[in-house]
Simulated scan of single mutants.
Amino acid sequence: MIHHIAETTSTNDDARDGRYRHGDVVWAERQTAGRGQRGHTWTSPEGENLTFSVVLEPTFLPVGEQFLLSEAVALALCDTFEAFGIAARIKWTNDIYVGNHKLSGMLFEHSFSGPTLSRSVVGIGINVNQTAFDPALPNPVSMALAAGRAFRREEVLDAFLAALRRRYALLEGGEAGRLHRHYAERLYRLGEEHPFRHPDGSLFRATMLGVRPTGELELRHADGTTRAYLFREVEFVVKR
Rank of each mutant, 00 (worst) to 15 (best):
Y188M: 03
E155S: 13
R167L: 15
L171W: 00
V141E: 02
A163F: 11
I96N: 01
P115K: 06
R152G: 14
E175L: 14
R152H: 12
H182Q: 12
V128T: 01
L161P: 04
A146Y: 09
Q130C: 06
N139R: 14
L107S: 05
A176E: 15
A163N: 13
G148L: 05
L157H: 04
L107I: 00
N100M: 09
F151A: 05
F160G: 08
T131E: 00
A144H: 00
Y168Q: 09
L103S: 09
V128L: 05
L145R: 06
E175S: 11
G105D: 02
L171S: 15
F108D: 02
L179K: 09
L161G: 04
H110V: 06
L190A: 12
S104T: 05
E155I: 02
R181C: 03
F133G: 01
R152I: 01
T131K: 10
R152L: 10
V122D: 06
I124G: 01
M143A: 10
A162S: 15
L170W: 13
F160R: 02
V121S: 03
L103C: 05
L190N: 07
L170Y: 12
A159M: 07
G123H: 04
V98M: 01
H182E: 15
H110C: 06
D134S: 13
A169L: 11
R166Q: 15
E172G: 12
R167C: 10
A159C: 11
L187C: 08
L103H: 01
R149P: 02
F112S: 11
R167Q: 15
P115D: 09
A159D: 08
A163Y: 11
M143V: 05
R166K: 14
V128K: 08
L171R: 05
V141D: 04
H101Y: 15
F160Q: 10
S142H: 04
G99I: 12
L117K: 04
N139H: 14
A146T: 12
G114H: 08
E185T: 13
T131C: 06
R178T: 12
L137H: 02
H182T: 07
F108I: 04
F108A: 01
R178G: 08
A162D: 15
N100V: 13
R119W: 00
E185N: 13
G148D: 12
N129A: 08
E172L: 11
H180T: 00
R149L: 10
Y168C: 05
E154N: 05
R186S: 11
L145D: 05
T131L: 11
A132T: 13
V141G: 02
R152C: 10
I96V: 15
A184E: 11
